[in-house]
């Protein structure tokens, strides 16, 4: 089992099935990249780097999602 902590909640993945990048994780969660700010272990990941930013077992990810209205 591998694990990512997403917004404080541990999400488990069978060995070898951890999403490989931030972009892949967002796709699995059905979140549009243009509406989320992502932070991995306290560091902000720019949206343009979602596809190249690799994920590793045990990381803590904060996904701040935005919806319209202001």
């Amino acid at each position: 089992m591998e694990v990512l902590k997403i917004n404080g909640i541990e999400k488990q993945f069978p060995a070898g099935q951890l999403p490989s990048t931030v972009a892949e994780l967002l796709e699995q969660l059905d979140i549009k990249p243009a509406t989320v700010v992502a932070e991995i272990d306290g560091q902000i990941i720019e949206r343009k780097k979602f596809a190249e930013t690799k994920l590793r077992n045990g990381q803590s990810i904060e996904l701040v999602r935005f919806v319209g209205g202001g």
């Binding site: 549009k32 509406t35 700010v37 720019e46 935005f66």
Partner: peptide, 28 residues
């Protein structure tokens, strides 16, 4: 008003500026 614009400014403030705290609104 739009989710995309909110994302843009929050990401910009947090990655391109050193000082300001950003207070954002989502869901109202």
């Amino acid at each position: 008003d739009t989710a995309q614009a909110k994302q843009m400014i929050v990401e910009t403030v947090l990655t391109k500026m050193d000082k300001p705290i950003v207070v954002s609104v989502s869901g109202l």
